[in-house]
Design a protein around this nucleic acid. Structure first.
Length: 103
DNA sequence: ACGTTGATTGTTCGC
DNA sequence: GCGAACAATCAACGT
C-alpha cells in the first residue's frame, strides 16, 4: 500500500473539494496532545529541533495509555462535534433550495 | 453494505 | 507562510 506521507493533495477525482461550504474537518487527538506536550517536550528538551520533537512527540503519544489519551480524545471528540455543526450548516444550506451567501 | 481514499488538523523549526 | 515527520480521523465517495 502506498501511504503518501507528504501533503497528499487532490489527484484522483477531488471529491470533497467540491463542498460548497467545505466544512473542513476537526482536529485529532494528536493536535490537542501536541498542544500540551509541545510545552513539556520543548521544556524537557531546550533547543530541540523540530525533527526530534516531532518524533519524540509521536513516541510519547503512543507511550500514553488509552486512558491517558482520554483528555485528548475527549477534546478531539468535542472538536468533531464542532465540525458537525459546520457540516450541519453546510448540509442545511446544501439541501436548502436557495443558496445564500452570507455577506 | 463495505472498502478505499483523500482531505484536514496542529506542533515545532528554518528560510 | 510553507513544508515536512508525527498521529488521528472520518466523512464522503467508490464499488
Amino acid at each position: 500500500m502506498a501511504k503518501e506521507t507528504k501533503t497528499r493533495k487532490a489527484k484522483t477525482a477531488g471529491r470533497r473539494k467540491k463542498d460548497p461550504n467545505a466544512p473542513k474537518r476537526s482536529l485529532s487527538a494528536y493536535m490537542f496532545f501536541a498542544n500540551e506536550q509541545r510545552e513539556t517536550v520543548r521544556s524537557e528538551n531546550p533547543g530541540i529541533a523540530f525533527g526530534q520533537v516531532g518524533k519524540l512527540l509521536g513516541e510519547r503519544w503512543k507511550a500514553l495509555s488509552a486512558k491517558d489519551k482520554i483528555p485528548y480524545e475527549t477534546r478531539a471528540a468535542q472538536d468533531k462535534k464542532r465540525y458537525e455543526d459546520e457540516k450541519a450548516s453546510y448540509l442545511a444550506n446544501g439541501s436548502a433550495d436557495f443558496e445564500e451567501e452570507e455577506e
